[in-house]
C-alpha cells in the first residue's frame, strides 16, 4: 500500500523565476522523511510538486520526473486529480471547510468523490478520527461545525480528512507550526502510528521534531541570494544530526547559520 517516490531532475517555477533547482531523491515507503532548511528555500514548493499541487498556482510549472512506484506523475495521460487522491496533503494552517460539520469534514473527500453509503461513511469517520487521535474529543459532537474546534483539534481534523480517502502517501507542510506542545506531541505520536501504513513526508522548522519523528532527513538550502533552492543532502536522520556530510548542513543544525 505505501509507495516509494523517486524524484529526478526536478525544477519548479513560478512564472519565470525558478524556485527549486534540479532536485533528485528517493523517499522510502513506510517511513518518515523530514525536510528541513531555512525559510524560502523551496521546501513547500518541492512538497507541492510531489502531488501536483504546485500547478494549481497560476503560471507555476514543473520540469523533471516524479516516479511513484515506476509511474511518472508528470507523464502524459496522468490526471492530477487522481494523483492527489493517492498522495494526500496536510497544510501548515488548519483549513477545515467552514460550512461543514466535523463529520462532513472527515468524509468530504469521499463524498465529493461520490461515496455515499451512510453505514460505510460512519465507519470511516470513526476510523479516521481515531487515526488522527481526535475521536475521544469529538465523538459526542460530530454534528458541530469543524471550524468551532481549537486550532490543534482543527489540524488533527484536517489529518483525519486527509487519511479518510486512504492515500498511499501523506505530505505534511509544517503541520505543527501553529500548535501548542501537547497538540504537537499528539500529532507526532500520530505520525509514528501512521508510518506503518503510509509513506510520510513532513516539512518542519523544528529540529527536535525532525529528529524525533523522521527516519530520513533532507536538508534544503538556497544556492545563494536570489538563486533557486536546492537539496543539499539527504540521509538517515541520525547521521544528518550527528555527522552530516556537508558543512552547510552542520552549520544549519547547530544554529551557526546566517
Amino acid at each position: 500500500m505505501a509507495k516509494r517516490i523517486e524524484v529526478s531532475g526536478l525544477n519548479a517555477y513560478y512564472g519565470k523565476t525558478r524556485a527549486i533547482e534540479d532536485i533528485s531523491m528517493t523517499i522510502e515507503p513506510r517511513s518518515v522523511t523530514a525536510f528541513i532548511g531555512p525559510s524560502g528555500c523551496g521546501k513547500s514548493t518541492f512538497l507541492r510538486t510531489l502531488n501536483r499541487m504546485h500547478e494549481v498556482i497560476p503560471s507555476a510549472r514543473v520540469e523533471g520526473k516524479v516516479l511513484l512506484d515506476e509511474v511518472d506523475l508528470y507523464g502524459a495521460g496522468v490526471d492530477p486529480v487522481a494523483v492527489r487522491r493517492v498522495i494526500g496533503m496536510v497544510f501548515q494552517r488548519p483549513n477545515p471547510f467552514p460550512t461543514m460539520s466535523i463529520y462532513e469534514n472527515v468524509v468530504a473527500g469521499l463524498k465529493l468523490n461520490g461515496v455515499r453509503r451512510k453505514g460505510q461513511l460512519d465507519e470511516i469517520v470513526e476510523k479516521s478520527l481515531r487515526g488522527a487521535n481526535l475521536w475521544n474529543e469529538v465523538k459526542d459532537r460530530l454534528g458541530r461545525p469543524g471550524a468551532g474546534l481549537s486550532g490543534g483539534q482543527q489540524q488533527r481534523l484536517c489529518i483525519a480528512r486527509a487519511i479518510a480517502v486512504e492515500p498511499q502517501v501523506l505530505l505534511m507542510d509544517e503541520p505543527c507550526s501553529a500548535l501548542d506542545p501537547i497538540s504537537t506531541l499528539a500529532i507526532e505520536d500520530l505520525i509514528a502510528n501512521l508510518k506503518d501504513q503510509y509513506t510520510i513526508v513532513i516539512v518542519t522548522h523544528n529540529m527536535q521534531q525532525a529528529a524525533r519523528v523522521s527516519d530520513r532527513t533532507a536538508f534544503f538550502n538556497l544556492a545563494g541570494p536570489g538563486k533557486p533552492g536546492r537539496m543539499v543532502e539527504i540521509d538517515e536522520t541520525n547521521k544528518i544530526f550527528t555527522n552530516p556530510g556537508e558543512k552547510a548542513t552542520e552549520d544549519y543544525i547547530t544554529g551557526r547559520f546566517g
Binding site: N51, V83, G109, L112
Partner: peptide, 9 residues
C-alpha cells in the same frame, strides 16, 4: 480550494 484539490476533488 487547495484543501479540496488536495483531497483529489
Amino acid at each position: 480550494r487547495e484543501a479540496s484539490f488536495a483531497l483529489g476533488v
